[in-house]
Design a protein around this nucleic acid. Structure first.
Lengths: 207, 207
DNA sequence: CCAATAAATGAACGGCGTTCACCGAACGGT
DNA sequence: ACCGTTCGGTGAACGCCGTTCATTTATTGG
């Protein structure tokens, strides 16, 4: 009949529109400023209408989390293709930091708000976006080890976790404890890379 | 006259009581669950009465931030007295992580909520508790350099910032993205220390 | 043109932070 | 001993919030 298809499409479009407007609000004023009533106002529907498309506010937040993380992943991917593992780590760090600084409110939402909101990203060891991007890092450290430039006694997974934690710490301290760090985030990230990369070859090279 | 003194003391005691009850609520249910009305209920006063002692909810949060940070500092201090800089860093990391895991809601409040709440801790380069404890780390890295066990080309301040960021990243990822990290926080912290400590002497030693 | 189905809504509930006019008790001066 | 003042304390209200549900409005298939 085609008419139910059209309805379904319109329904999906409205849902998408709601998400987009919500995304704008979060990026502009932060997740805390996202209210169902203001969102309803912005899309020109009654508040109750939102509940026809989302279970509740958290469901919208979860959707935004997924998209935010995908954006981050998209920024990491080019860096992950660099062949030299040392440079790859540098580029990954640079991209991660750039994302955090350019999209602070998105970063906050994904990594610093309620675990409930981002939980979906970090389970399913072999499906979710979280583990998938984490694997990029593990691979980088394995390649680094193959080149004899990493702590050999430590599992690559653990090095990757420390690396991610280091980057996350740099960004999130900047976002929450502004002015605590003196050095710019990119410089700290470079230092982080330098400490994780060891070995004989000229290891100090900034970009 | 002594009567105004008594009044002042009672006033201070009530204020203190309010802070303590608020602290309990935050530690038990998180900062998000701290509401002026529930707090008023818990101390058995009307909500409006709280405003005779605090400008607003944020003022209470700021007070809790200061105290939370002092608790953290108290846990760091013994570790800061260790003579050997390598062991000192280990102990500092261990203490920091322990605090974060034992007081997750306090940690969240101080380091992961609105910058407004913790701002007071991180300004006043030579007075605030933040810079003061940061100085502990800088000193540790200076001692480390003196022993020839740190990246000499990098300023101690920057190494300290990376160190703190690394610890913060480990804790805060655990708190927000539970299950993302496979390894326990203490193990990651050890690895972090190992990567920041270089040099000839037996550098791999876990505690 | 009507019955059925789906979309959208207004109004309400309970909770929130915050303000302010008001009350009662304790106080200092006489 | 009385009285005006001062001050800790409060009830009620304002404007927000998320969420629910009975009801209305629009759209569809017969």
């Amino acid at each position: 009949m085609g008419i139910t298809e059209r309805k379904e499409r319109q329904r999906a479009e409205l849902r998408e529109h709601i998400v987009q407007v919500a995304r704008d609000m979060v990026m502009k004023e932060g997740f805390g400023a996202l209210s169902m009533r203001k969102l309803a106002d912005a899309v020109e529907y009654a508040p109750a209408t939102l509940y026809l498309h989302f279970e509740n506010r958290d469901a919208i937040a979860r959707e935004l989390c997924v998209r935010g993380f995908q954006e981050l992943l998209a920024m990491l991917e080019p860096a992950a293709d660099v062949k030299d593992p040392v440079q790859r780590l540098s580029r990954l760090a640079e991209a991660y930091v750039a994302f955090g600084l350019e999209h602070p409110e998105t970063y906050r939402l994904v990594f610093m708000e309620d675990p409930k909101l981002s939980a979906a990203l970090f389970q399913d060891k072999h499906e979710g976006a979280g583990p998938k991007s984490f694997a990029l890092l593990v691979r980088a450290f394995e390649d680094l080890k193959a080149a004899g430039r990493a702590l050999d006694a430590t599992p690559s997974e653990q090095l990757a976790e420390v690396f991610w934690a280091g980057l996350h710490g740099i960004i999130s301290l900047k976002l929450t404890c502004a002015g605590f760090q003196g050095a710019p985030a990119q410089a700290l990230a470079e230092t982080l890379v330098a400490t994780l990369v060891h070995g004989p070859k000229s290891s100090r090279r900034s970009r």
